[in-house]
Design a protein around this nucleic acid. Structure first.
Lengths: 129, 129
DNA sequence: CAAACCTTGACACGCCCGTGGTAAGGTTGG
DNA sequence: CCAACCTTACCACGGGCGTGTCAAGGTTTG
């Protein structure tokens, strides 16, 4: 059997079993189930779990954000509406708004991460998948 | 002067002054400032405030979600990475995952909205902008 | 058959989000 | 000049997020 149980999968992907269930509930990674209902993580799921960790730590985003991106890609009406709204940006010639937002977004975890010494490796977007 | 102060803008867009400042802090709508630093909301900002309200109430999303979409559109590396991750969906033939996620996402506000009697009008995505 | 897993559900905790309020101080206008 | 606005900076508060732990019960395995 090349499918791992939740504890095994957790151990080698550096998540907790709790978080694996949470990630499933968020609709991000839904493993197969055995006849008795046990979660079975195959190689694909394991890889996905590892890259998910990469994603959230490297860009300082939450699982909810990834879920929202998924919803964006699934719900065309939502994507179109948001796109339309964002496109109607007021002409702001030499203002730099992205930086502000980024700073605000990242302030959340800044101290925590500084303390934890988290240092994102310069992995390319391509090798993330 | 066709630019409104924060209270005036709040009143006619049905936000609170507090939320207008919050929205600005989130990098979503940043009005001009007068010499003394007063926020000045022009017609464009007012329209954007109204459609923003439409957006969040109709799709049950948060300001953080809109901000994240904005970040997605601004940060190409992030967009590429997330896209790559989402694209690597495990082949799941007859499973319907989107519904679960949607339900989970919407459970947050369901009771509140039900009580408040919020009823999204079937506005099209196009007329939202 | 007992130990060691697994399941779902619940309680807890600290921090963030959306929101309101208030205080201390600057600006505007009659 | 004073009332009525504006600014930023805080405290508060309910609910969500990310996480751990525990209980009650079913499953797998030596």
């Amino acid at each position: 059997m090349d499918a791992l149980t939740i504890h095994e999968a957790a151990q080698i992907t550096d998540w907790s079993p709790r978080m694996l269930r949470y990630i499933e509930r968020a609709g991000l990674i839904e493993p197969q189930r055995s006849d008795a209902g046990y979660r079975l993580y195959g190689p694909a799921e394991l890889q996905r779990l590892r890259t998910l960790r990469e994603l959230v730590t490297r860009f300082q985003i939450g699982l909810g954000d990834v879920g929202f991106a998924q919803r964006l890609r699934r719900d065309d009406e939502l994507a179109t509406a948001i796109d339309a709204w964002l496109q109607a940006q007021p002409r702001r010639p030499e203002h730099v708004p992205a930086a502000d937002w980024l700073r605000w977004e990242q302030d959340k975890h800044s101290r925590l991460l500084a303390l934890a010494g988290v240092r994102a490796e310069p992995a390319t977007a391509a090798n993330l998948a």
